[in-house]
């Protein structure tokens, strides 16, 4: 066997894909030809790079979950395949919707409660009238008191006292 014939067989030899007859024919050539032997060693050297990466564990309950979806008619292919970023988005969307809904409900509840509280705080029409009339009565009563005191003062101190009382107001 010469190099021209041997070279294409070297990768197959390294991969164990040659028949025993082919291997038996190639081996003596590799032993006697440094170039082809070097090629075989170079091919072989690549294997060392292919080591398994760190495992990603299968989540608990994965099989049951998948089987449930499959039986429910989910064919997988119809669902747009989501890369990690979109997948996160896909996962976050229901959460976002839930938060928005919750906020909307909370806002409505807040409005309702504030209206109810305002109504509670506001006196009824009769109460309001009573409060207003009481306040009015009180202020009128105070004015009346002041007027009386002024008249009393006029009676005792004359015009000067009245002017002082007016300027003092």
């Amino acid at each position: 066997m010469n190099c021209e014939h041997a070279r294409p067989l070297v990768p197959l030899y390294v991969d164990g894909e040659l028949t025993s007859v082919q291997s038996a024919e190639l081996r003596p050539h590799l032993l006697s030809c440094p170039a082809c032997r070097g090629l075989a060693q170079a091919e072989q050297s690549l294997h060392a790079w292919f080591v398994p990466t760190a495992e990603i564990p299968v989540p608990t309950g994965f099989a049951a979950h998948v089987a449930r979806r499959a039986v429910a008619g989910d064919t997988g292919s119809k669902r747009p395949f989501a890369p990690a970023e979109s997948s996160n988005h896909e996962h976050s969307e229901p959460i976002l919707q839930f938060v928005l809904h919750a906020l909307a409900v909370a806002a409505i509840a807040l409005v309702v409660v504030s209206i109810a509280m305002r109504r509670l705080d506001q006196p009824a029409a009769e109460e309001l009238k009573a409060h207003e009339s009481q306040a009015l009565d009180a202020s009128l009563f105070a004015l009346d008191q002041i007027n009386r005191e002024e008249l009393r003062a006029v009676g005792t101190n004359g015009l000067q006292g009245t002017r002082d009382g007016s300027s003092g107001r």
């Binding site: 998948v66 064919t75 997988g76 395949f81 990690a84």
Partner: peptide, 24 residues
């Protein structure tokens, strides 16, 4: 799937999609 991506989310998606297609 891990040979093609290092993202656990993507690995899970690929495998799940594979089984769903297989079942259908």
């Amino acid at each position: 799937a891990r040979h093609y991506t290092s993202s656990p989310v993507e690995v899970e998606d690929i495998v799940q999609d594979t089984f769903l297609k297989a079942y259908s």
